[in-house]
Design a protein around this nucleic acid. Structure first.
Length: 234
DNA sequence: GCGACAG
DNA sequence: ATCTTGTCGC
């Protein structure tokens, strides 16, 4: 226990926040990605009243076999991993990464292939201290990451247009800093919140999310990881 | 003091 | 996040 390699994740809120402030300065907001051949989706689910954490990672091949507008129908699954472990931290708004990243890292360690891009279920820099779970994970994996959340954590925004692909900027702070985008990924459905995680800009993040949209609200990477982590998927 | 609050 | 039946629509 005292020698657990992930011991440094078990922090009191006080220390966790201090760590986030230090790490936030290491999050890269410029594009720095290698040619994309594989895209991974990550999500965490729970079992037994939250006692067990399930981390799921799904790796898809890019480009898809038959790419159509908003329909990458042939995004082939290259590999998928599910890792289970005891839950170590409770959910605290703003400190989600300390609860989910350890399990996600363990799942990645079991992966045989390495993706060039990762989509995470949660916020990237659209976070009070600009380091949401997607940014934190990207920092640890040293990979470009994108935050794809189903709801807002912080920031202000106007309602995006009704058409698929319409989006409005998510801004925060007294200076209206742009921290993400509110994207209408499907007609007549609540928009999703896209934000850069690590090593890429908002335009690039939006571009990839839109390119990975199928007929559902969530882009294929996180949609498939969602299924796996939630137990549903086959 | 009063809301808001990823998963 | 998770607990859950039916129901509307392509």
């Amino acid at each position: 226990m005292p020698n657990s390699p992930l011991h440094d994740w078990d922090l009191a809120p006080r220390e966790a926040i201090a760590l986030q402030k230090r790490l936030a300065g290491q999050v890269e907001r410029e594009d720095r990605l290698d040619p994309v051949g594989r895209i991974a989706g990550v999500d965490i689910g729970f079992e037994q009243d939250g006692a067990i954490t399930r981390a799921a990672v799904v790796v898809l091949a890019w480009p898809p076999g038959a790419e159509g507008e908003f329909e990458p129908t042939t995004l082939e699954i290259v590999e998928q991993v599910v890792h289970r472990e005891p839950t170590r931290m409770p959910y605290v708004p703003g400190l989600l990464s300390f609860r989910e990243v350890p399990a996600a890292l363990a799942a990645f360690e079991r992966l045989e292939v390495r993706p060039e891009l990762v989509m995470v279920d949660g916020q990237g820099i659209a976070h009070p201290r600009r380091i949401g779970v997607a940014s934190h994970l990207g920092l640890w994996l040293d990979l470009p990451t994108i935050g794809v959340a189903k709801s807002r954590l912080c920031g202000r925004h106007r309602e995006p247009g009704p058409a698929r692909g319409d989006w409005t900027p998510l801004v925060d702070g007294p200076d209206d800093e742009v921290i993400g985008a509110v994207l209408r990924s499907r007609v007549k459905v609540k928009p999703i919140f896209v934000s850069p995680g690590h090593r890429l800009t908002l335009p690039t993040a939006l571009d990839w999310v839109i390119r990975c949209l199928g007929r559902t609200k969530l882009p294929e990477p996180t949609r498939l990881a969602d299924r796996l982590a939630s137990r549903r998927g086959r």
